[in-house]
């Protein structure tokens, strides 16, 4: 039996889309275009709102805001140099620890150290680290990390107090516990992006290295890591960006003291922690100053993230070509 596609009076079944279908299509295209426009508009509106709110403080404090060192509500003198210092110092230290451990774990998971099944389990474990909320890390830091590092920190201060890094004692919250927790928080980001970067290295490059008689680590350090260096550096930059904007764990652990110190054990402050701890109770003038600080935080993270994203795009393009 053959299927009849033509109706008895030889009219075809096929027909162009109805007027309603055309209309729906038009509306659909317009609405989804608006969706894309909305994202751009949102970013512009965020910049506008924060900038607009910060304007009075910018006019009042000018560039002196960036180099001022006191945050005094009574006299309305606001400066964020200690916070900028604290943000960059804590993030750099966290990047040093978290970056090293993260890249090492990426190598560990991609270079056949573990049987594949175990590697997947371990990877899931590290990914779970990223799922733990910032406040929970803060709570854990208060009750686990601080008591754990305090004896060692105070011993270092007693015996090596002449070294600037150990020049104060750790009385509770301070830079060191904050940095430890911060490095744990950026570790999954660094490990995940580095793993992808190392995964992109063609297998034959590694085989060629082994064929030349390299040891496992000569192949990793002299061939694989340099080949993946673009992706790894973008992992580090993006991890750094994450550390800069991290708020709650730091607000709970860093001690919120507006001072500039090299010491790892003294309390400090960051831009994000300043916002978190001062904003809810701030009056008008201080709030405008906080908006100014938010604008600076936005500028710093924006620059770092754009650099990270560009490195990532650039290396991906290069790897695809190669």
């Amino acid at each position: 039996m053959t299927v009849q596609f033509v109706l008895p009076d030889s009219r075809s079944l096929s027909r162009p889309p109805s007027a309603a279908a055309y209309l729906v299509d038009r509306v659909f295209v317009v609405v989804s275009t608006l969706g894309a426009v909305a994202i751009i508009a949102l970013v512009a509106y965020i910049l506008y709102q924060i900038g607009h709110q910060a304007l009075p403080a910018i006019q009042r404090n000018g560039a002196g805001f960036l180099v001022g060192t006191s945050w005094d509500v009574q006299t309305s003198t606001f400066g964020i140099l200690p916070q900028i210092w604290g943000t960059l110092y804590s993030s750099l230290l966290a990047l040093l620890i978290g970056g090293f451990v993260g890249v090492t774990i990426a190598i560990f998971l991609t270079q056949d150290f573990l049987p594949p099944r175990l590697a997947v389990t371990f990877r899931t474990l590290i990914e779970m680290l990223a799922a733990i909320p910032s406040v929970v890390f803060g709570l854990w830091g208060i009750f686990v990390v601080i008591p754990f590092v305090r004896p060692g920190a105070n011993w270092l201060n007693d015996h090596f107090g002449f070294i600037p890094f150990f020049s104060t004692s750790l009385s509770g919250p301070g830079l060191l516990p904050a940095v430890i927790v911060l490095s744990i928080m950026i570790l999954p980001t660094v490990a995940a992006i580095s793993q992808d970067a190392i995964g992109l290295v063609p297998y034959k490059i590694k085989e060629a290295a082994y064929g030349m008689g390299t040891t496992r680590w000569e192949a990793i350090l002299k061939v694989i890591v340099p080949t993946a260096s673009g992706g790894i550096s973008s992992a580090l930059v993006l991890g750094f960006g994450r550390a800069l904007g991290e708020t709650m764990a730091l607000a709970m652990l860093i001690g919120n003291a507006n001072q500039i110190s090299l010491s790892l054990f003294s309390p400090a402050n960051t831009l994000a922690a300043l916002l978190a701890s001062n904003f809810p109770e701030a009056a008008q003038v201080e709030r405008q100053a906080l908006m100014y600080a938010a604008l600076m935080l936005l500028a710093i993270t924006l620059i770092v993230n754009v650099i990270g994203t560009l490195i990532l795009l650039w290396t991906q393009r290069k790897m695809v070509k190669a």
Partner: peptide, 20 residues
């Protein structure tokens, strides 16, 4: 901009919504 926004410190969303 979406990519940039994902790297945005989450507290800034709070600051923005406070203002807006």
């Amino acid at each position: 901009l979406s990519k940039v926004l994902t790297g945005f410190p989450s507290i800034l969303a709070g600051v923005f919504v406070y203002a807006a």
